[in-house]
Design a protein around this nucleic acid. Structure first.
Lengths: 166, 166
DNA sequence: AGGACATTGTTAGCTGTGCTAACGATCTCG
DNA sequence: CGAGATCGTTAGCACAGCTAACAATGTCCT
C-alpha cells in the first residue's frame, strides 16, 4: 500500500523538520544576538533590503505575522537606525518601510556571520551532499509556500461554505 | 576557484534555511496552538516520550536551552498534566521528568495534526522529491548537530577533543 | 568529621515575539 | 456628507529565552 508508506514518511518528516527548525533557529539566534538582531528582525530586514521598500501591512503578510507584531519589529529596527518609516504621499494611512544604508550593511554582516557558522559544517559535506541539501531547502521552501496558500484559502475550499451557515 | 563557489552556495543556503526555519515554525505553531502546546513544549515533551524519563538538566542540554528556561517549560507541561516531576532517590538534587499517559496521547495527537498539515503538500510531491526532502532533512539534522558540537567545544581546552583536532 | 567547592534546580527580573481587542486616522463609495 | 472599510498603532496578555542570585545537596580533601 503506497499511500500508507507515504503517510509514515510524512509523519517522520514532519517531526524531523519540526525539530530541525527549532534547533536551527536556536543556534542561529545565538550568532544573530551578537549583532543585536533577532531572527524576526533579521528576516523582516532582509525583506526590505532585497525586496525594496514595503508598507507595514505588506511586511506583516510577507512574514506571516499580524500587524501589531510587525509594528514592534519595525520599531525595533527603526530605533537601531536600520530602517526608517516614510509616509505615503497619496495615501496617508500607509507607512512605507525603507532600509537605511546601515541596515543594508548590518544585514550583510549578519549573513556573513551566519554563513561562517555554517561554513565549517558545510566544508565537511561532499559536493553531492551540498547539492542535496540545497534541493531539500528549495523543496522545503515550496512546501511552506504551499502550506501557506492552503491555510489562507482554508475557508474557500468549498465554495458553498458561506459565512453564517452553522 | 572551487572554494569561492562553495562560499556563495553556503551563503545562499544559510539564508534559505534561516527563512525556511522561521516560516515553518510560524506555521506549525498555529496548528500546535490548537492543542495548547507551543513548539518548545512539544519538542521537550517528545524528548521524554521517545527518550524516556530525563533529568531537567539533561532535558535542557538536549534542547540547547538554559536550565531556567527548561524549568518553566516543564512547569507548563506539568500544569497541563502531560509530565510529572519525580525526585531521584540516590541524588536528591535531581528532578526526573516523566511523561504521563496523557502526555503521550497529546504528543501523538500533535504529530497527527502536524502531519495532516503537511500531508496535502506532500501529496503533490513525486516520490523522488519526497526522497530528496527526506535526505535534505537528514543532512540538515546532521549539520545542526555539527554546529552544536563546534559551538560547545569553542570554549573548552582539550576535553573530549573533536576528531582531527590539533 | 568537617569545611570548601561543585552541581542541580529554582526564583526573580529583563528583553523580545506572538496574539486579540480597541482605537484614531484616513480613504472610498453611495 | 456620512457609513463603512482599511491601515497602523496602542494596550494588555502569555510565553520563551537569558543572566544573576539562591537553597539544597553531593563530593572531595585535609
Amino acid at each position: 500500500m503506497k499511500s500508507r508508506k507515504r503517510e509514515r514518511d510524512a509523519l517522520a518528516l514532519a517531526d524531523q523538520l519540526h525539530s530541525a527548525a527549532i534547533h536551527l533557529l536556536r543556534h542561529l539566534r545565538k550568532e544573530d544576538d551578537a549583532s543585536g538582531l533577532s531572527a524576526p528582525r533579521l528576516s523582516a530586514l532582509s525583506v526590505v533590503v532585497f525586496g525594496g521598500p514595503a508598507t507595514l501591512g505588506q511586511l506583516a503578510r510577507a512574514e506571516q505575522v499580524k500587524p501589531p507584531t510587525m509594528t514592534r519589529i519595525v520599531t525595533g529596527l527603526e530605533n537601531d537606525g536600520l530602517v526608517r518609516r516614510e509616509g505615503d504621499k497619496s495615501d496617508k494611512r500607509l507607512t512605507r518601510i525603507h532600509a537605511t544604508p546601515q541596515g543594508q550593511r548590518v544585514l550583510m554582516a549578519g549573513r556573513a556571520r551566519r554563513v561562517k557558522l555554517l561554513a565549517s559544517a558545510v566544508e565537511k559535506l561532499g559536493a553531492a551532499e551540498l547539492a542535496d541539501l540545497g534541493r531539500g531547502a528549495q523543496l522545503l521552501g515550496e512546501l511552506i509556500d504551499s502550506m501557506r496558500r492552503q491555510n489562507d484559502s482554508s475557508q474557500n475550499r468549498f465554495r458553498g461554505a458561506a459565512p453564517g451557515s452553522p
